[in-house]
């Protein structure tokens, strides 16, 4: 196996680009062998109003992970493990129970565990309440390298409200004091009406590095955008020797912005109306943006 091998545990939909359908192809296109374990088996995401299929039972997730363990040691096979949308606390517990022994193995180089704590967006929870403490349990394990919440998710998980930069700073510092996760990306935060993407790196000394980039705001929501963001961050993070710095976001944000902008334009062209939601981001037809060179990162600002 190549080094670029990732275990991606997210949802599956037959149609559309959310969950594994928004992460697997972009990662593959960037050269990753992706082992996809599906936490759901749905026809499409719920944003269409109706859908069919089911959440994967904890037992099925257990079986799939057990099957993978029987053919290879995760520490040897994977350089990254990504966990995201999981619709039940039961399935989350099963994932936890499989991953903890991987990190307990002494003397091994462990895969970096990236968690996208998918809870909801814009003030609305779309997982059961008991999923929230499960994410806190993941964080408390001491094995998570990087998390990629949106503002709402970070606020729920840190019991804070982010209204200004001082809030952002103190919440990230307090969050790190509690969980010791070395890297955090808040995919989007709105401060004074402007949107930003924020990175936190604990660093080796006491003083963390907190940096942010402006993000072009489109008055529209994009289903699967957070999953695609996490996939791009995972790739850039790995390419940066598993260190989160401004260069990681400088690589990811321009690509994401182009894919979202062009998806919006395609939707507008298809319907003749400015969309308030893009249900299918154009991951495949806009794939060439995935391989574009990184931005220069000159827009970065640091929080003291």
């Amino acid at each position: 196996m190549t080094n670029k091998s990732i275990l991606s545990i997210l949802s599956h939909v037959a149609h559309g680009y959310v969950g594994n359908r928004a992460t697997v192809f972009p990662l593959q296109y960037c050269g990753w062998d992706v082992d996809g374990v599906n936490t759901t088996n749905f026809s499409n995401h719920p944003g269409y109003g109706r859908f069919a299929g089911s959440a994967s039972s904890p037992h099925l997730v257990d079986e799939l992970l057990q099957g993978l363990k029987e053919i290879g040691n995760f520490n040897e096979v994977y350089s990254l493990i990504l966990t995201g949308y999981t619709p039940s606390a039961g399935a989350m517990q099963v994932i936890y129970d499989h991953l903890i022994p991987v990190y307990a193995q002494q003397g091994a180089k462990h895969p970096a565990w990236i968690v996208d704590p998918v809870l909801g967006d814009n003030g609305r929870l779309y997982v059961p309440e008991d999923v929230v403490p499960m994410y806190k349990k993941y964080f408390g394990s001491g094995h998570v390298s990087l998390i990629t919440p949106n503002q709402f998710e970070f606020e729920v998980l840190s019991d804070t409200k982010l209204s200004d930069w001082s809030d952002v700073r103190s919440a990230l510092v307090e969050f790190h004091r509690q969980y010791h996760i070395p890297y955090v990306v808040i995919s989007s935060v709105v401060i004074d009406g402007e949107m930003y993407s924020v990175g936190f790196a604990a660093g080796s000394k006491d003083k963390p590095s907190i940096f942010y980039f402006p993000v072009p705001q489109i008055d529209c929501s994009f289903n699967g955008c957070g999953d695609l963001f996490t996939a791009l961050v995972a790739n850039a993070f790995y390419n940066n020797n598993r260190v989160l710095g401004p260069e990681v976001l400088a690589e990811v944000l321009p690509k994401l912005a182009k894919i979202l902008r062009h998806s919006y334009d395609a939707e507008l062209a298809a319907t003749g109306q400015p969309p308030s939601v893009v249900r299918d981001i154009r991951v495949v037809s806009l794939r060439h943006h995935l391989l574009e060179p990184a931005g220069d990162g000159s827009l970065v600002k640091f929080l003291d």
Binding site: H12, A14, H15, F25, Q28, Y29, N38, N41, S56, L60, E63, L64, L65, Q66, G67, L68, E70, I71, V284, S285, R287
Partner: peptide, 20 residues
Amino acid sequence: FPLQAQGWDVDNINTVNFSN
């Protein structure tokens, strides 16, 4: 993946869901 890499939007239904 080969179809997607060639520009096909692929809807996919899984007839089995196996570890390997």
